[in-house]
Design a protein around this nucleic acid. Structure first.
Lengths: 181, 181
DNA sequence: ACCTGAACACCGTTCAAGT
DNA sequence: ACCTGAACACCGTTCAAGT
């Protein structure tokens, strides 16, 4: 007893990793914690609040962006790896980013750093938004495929390495930025 | 009476456009059609089946891809416009694309056309997947923001043109492909 | 402060039965 | 063939009441 926010979030991430985000319900979460569903609402204002806390945990290990354009591809790979550490990581983080103003999100620091180097402000924003979108999209796509697979409705998969696919796409995108640099 | 699949899909898209995808429930849909919820299950095997049919309608006006690399940006803009014609268009289409093998999806035709021109097969796939991801990500992001706005939990928005943002990102990406061409 | 118990207003889906 | 009626097994959330 004496639930803490951290313990609840950890348990919620465990359920998501095992069964997927659609199976994360307040009632099920409460049951696995040995508590009534309403008990969760003392610690979290709503399910959205809980999902937000989960997203924050996922992003906790993201190092602050620093460096020039060449560091962009490793930053993208790092974020992608963080999102993929938990199932539906992209969906959780994406939802929270939408609720935040751009200046408080993960992409803004990238934009700022790129302005510091060689990029015009408009291009820096396009670069930051574009790379962030690619990372989120690839991670989200993989999450959806994994969910479909676990439900047995998956299409025949080409045996590929998703992280490599993203790297290729980001490399192309960064090359496009260099051309305009 | 005498419901048809087309009429149900049209009504469902109407509800989504007015109230958003989270408010599209089988029960609510049935009520607006003057019918019992169970009646829908004679025409659709499941809610997923209905959502798939909605996605097909959204994609119905997408012209087949043709031409070289320079046509890629207009194709992306066209797809983006189609997705944005209905609320949650990106989410609906994305889900259906995940269930389909890549060869049956919208991106495969793009890949094939690009191979026909100047691109190496691996680069053509990266290009097609990358541009499709950018379009889906930008449209999905806008949908989520619109939903947050309608729920009154939106962050302060920078007054920008989303379609222009996507065009910029796609232009950068295409420039990156040209460099490797 | 922290949780229980019970309720409210919902969901998707199934299936026998009607017409 | 097409739909109703009724049920099953769930949801998120609220709130008085307990400790």
């Amino acid at each position: 007893m004496n639930l803490t926010r951290e313990a609840v979030v950890a348990q919620a991430l465990g359920i998501v990793d095992q069964y997927g985000l659609p199976d994360l319900t307040m009632r099920r979460l409460a049951t696995t914690l040995g508590v009534q569903p309403s008990a969760l609402y003392w610690h979290f204002a709503s399910k959205q609040d809980l999902l937000g806390a989960m997203a924050a945990v996922i992003l906790a290990d993201l190092p602050p962006y620093s460096g020039d354009l060449t560091r962009l591809t490793v930053w993208a790979a790092r974020l992608h790896a963080l999102l993929r550490r938990h199932r539906s990581g992209a969906e959780l983080v994406w939802a929270v980013e939408t609720l935040r103003p751009w200046e408080a999100g993960v992409g803004y620091a990238v934009e700022q750093a790129l302005v510091q180097t060689c990029l015009a402000p408009a291009l820096a924003r396009t670069a930051a938004r574009g790379v962030l979108s690619l990372v989120l999209a690839y991670a989200f796509d993989e999450d959806q495929r994994q969910l479909a697979r676990s439900l047995g409705v998956s299409p025949p998969e080409p045996a590929i390495d998703p992280a490599r696919d993203l790297d290729d796409a980001v490399a192309v995108f960064v090359a496009g930025i260099e051309r305009a640099c």
